[in-house]
Design a protein around this nucleic acid. Structure first.
Lengths: 254, 254
DNA sequence: CGGACTATTGATTTGCGTCAAAGATTGTGG
DNA sequence: CCACAATCTTTGACGCAAATCAATAGTCCG
C-alpha cells in the first residue's frame, strides 16, 4: 500500500468521522481498504450511465461532476464531488442508474472495490450505518438541487451553489471566503440549468454588487452575508446531525 | 399487533424483496417491526422540514409528497411516495434536512421508530444493505427529477412524470395503463416546476394527441409508446438491479 | 343549493434562450 | 520564450417558452 493510498483513505475516514462515530478497530478497517489510484484529465468521463462498475470512486484531488442527459442530448450536472467524497458510494449497493461521472479538472481517484465496502459494512455492523448516512447527506444536497433548479431565478441559483461549495470546501469547520473551483461558465450552466450566456450575465450582476467574483478558477466571496441572502442559503441541510454525538452511532444493541 | 399493522409491514417487506434477498428469519424480523397507524387528511403536513423526528413513515394507503420551499415561499415537490414506500427511511440515519412530507390525498401511515429500524439493520448484518439500497433507489429517482426539471420542456416533463408513476404503481411487474393519481394541476405544477396554468395547457396538448388524459384523479394512458417517446422515458433507473439475484445480497462473508 | 376549490381559456409580459461576433486567457509545440 | 490555436468570457440584438394577470366555467361536497 503506497503512501498516497494511505493518505487518500485517511481523507475518506475524516469525512466519515465528521458524520459518524467509529471505534479504533473500525477506523483501522477503513484505513485498510484496498483500491488503486488513477489519474484523469479534465473532461474525462470515467463512470458511464448505463454501465455497471464494481468499484466506488474516492476523489483524492480535483473536481468531478455527476452528469445526466436528456434524450435530446441536453446535459445536466446533478452533483459536484470534491476531495474526500466517495462519489459513487451508492453504486456499492446499487451498481447502475444514477448517472455518469466526469472529471471537471485534472483529478486523482482511488477506486475501491464494492466488495470491500460491502464486506466492511457486514463485518462491523455498528459501522454499517456510516456509508448509508453518507449517501443520505448526498441525497439531501440533491433535494436542494431540485429546489434550486426548479424554483429560483438565475442569480439566486448561482449564489446558492457558490455558498454551498464554500461550506463544503470548508468541511464543517468554517465557511471559506476563497476557494478553488476550477469550473467553466458552461459547466456552471449545466449545474444550474441555465445557458452559459445567462450564467455570464448573472455572475456579472453578482460581481457588480461585490458579492462574489470568480477569477481564473477561484471563487472570491466579497460579502458572505450578502451572498447567502441573495442565494437564500441556509447550511442546515449540509450538517450531518444536530443531535448529540451518541446519535451518530447506534450503541451496542446485540 | 393489529391485522392492518401486519398487512402494512407485509407491503413494506414486499417492496424490500423486490430489491434485496432476505432470509426467512430476516423477513420475520421485518414483519415484527413495531409501529403505530395514523390517518391523515388531504393537505396535511406530517413531517416538517427543520423538525427532527424519531419515526419513519411507511405509506400504507394514499399519496404523499416530499416538499421543499425557497426563501420566498415558492414550493417544490421533490418526490411522490406511494403505498409500500417508507417515505423518510433516510431519517433513520439522518433525522433532518431532507424536506417535509405532506399528504396529497387522504393517507394512512404506519410510523415505525427509527430505533427499531436501526436495530434491525445492526442485528442482521446481511440485511443491513436492504434499507440502504432502498434509499438509493429513491436517490436515483431524485437525480432524474433534477434532469427533468432542469432540462426538459413542459410537455416532456409532464409526460416523463406520468410514465414514472405508471411504472412505480405497476411495482416492477407491468406498466399500468390506468392508475389512480389523485393530484391537482397545481400540485403537478409544484412537482414539475411549472405554473398550474401552464400545466393545464400542456396536459391539453397531451390529451389532444391521445397520449394521456387525467380524469377525476385517474391517469389514463392512451398510447404508452407515444407517451414514453414524448417523455424521453427509459425505466432503467427504476430497476433495482440488472445483475443476477446473488448480487442483491452479500453472501456470507464472515 | 351554495360555497370553495379546481380547471380552462385569453391577453400580455418577461426572464432566459438563441444566434453571432469580438476579446481575453490559456496552453502547447517549435 | 514566443506564436498561435484552442478554449473561455463577454456583449449585443432578437425570439420564445413559460409566467403573470384576469375572468369564466365546471365540480365536488356538506
Amino acid at each position: 500500500m503506497s503512501l498516497s493510498h494511505q493518505v487518500s483513505l485517511q481523507l475518506f475516514l475524516d469525512r466519515l468521522m465528521e458524520r459518524s462515530v467509529l471505534s479504533d478497530e473500525e477506523q483501522q478497517a477503513v484505513r485498510a481498504l484496498p483500491g488503486h489510484m488513477i489519474e484523469l484529465n479534465a473532461r474525462q468521463h470515467f463512470v458511464h450511465v448505463h454501465e455497471e462498475s464494481s468499484y466506488s470512486c474516492l476523489i483524492v484531488a480535483g473536481l468531478v461532476a455527476r452528469v445526466g442527459y436528456t434524450g435530446t442530448g441536453a446535459r445536466q450536472i446533478t452533483a459536484f464531488h470534491i476531495p474526500g467524497d466517495m462519489a459513487d458510494l451508492h453504486s456499492a449497493v446499487r451498481p447502475i442508474g444514477i448517472g455518469g461521472l466526469q472529471a471537471v479538472s485534472r483529478t486523482t481517484v482511488l477506486r475501491v472495490p464494492h466488495r470491500a465496502i460491502r464486506e466492511l459494512a457486514a463485518h462491523y455492523p455498528a459501522i454499517s450505518e456510516a456509508p448509508w448516512r453518507d449517501c443520505m447527506l448526498d441525497a439531501a444536497i440533491l433535494m436542494q438541487w431540485v429546489v434550486n433548479v426548479g424554483r429560483r431565478d438565475a442569480r439566486t441559483r448561482l449564489a446558492h451553489l457558490l455558498c454551498e461549495m464554500a461550506v463544503r470546501y470548508g468541511a464543517d469547520r468554517q465557511v471559506l471566503r476563497t476557494y478553488r473551483f476550477p469550473i467553466t461558465q458552461e459547466q456552471l450552466a449545466d449545474a444550474t440549468a441555465l445557458t452559459s450566456v445567462h450564467v455570464n450575465r448573472s455572475l456579472k450582476t453578482l460581481r457588480a454588487d461585490r458579492l462574489v467574483e470568480i477569477r481564473s478558477g477561484t471563487v472570491e466571496i466579497g460579502d458572505w452575508d450578502g451572498l447567502a441572502t441573495v442565494g437564500e442559503f441556509d447550511a442546515a441541510y449540509l450538517v450531518a446531525d444536530t443531535a448529540p454525538e451518541r446519535q451518530k452511532r447506534l450503541l451496542a444493541v446485540m
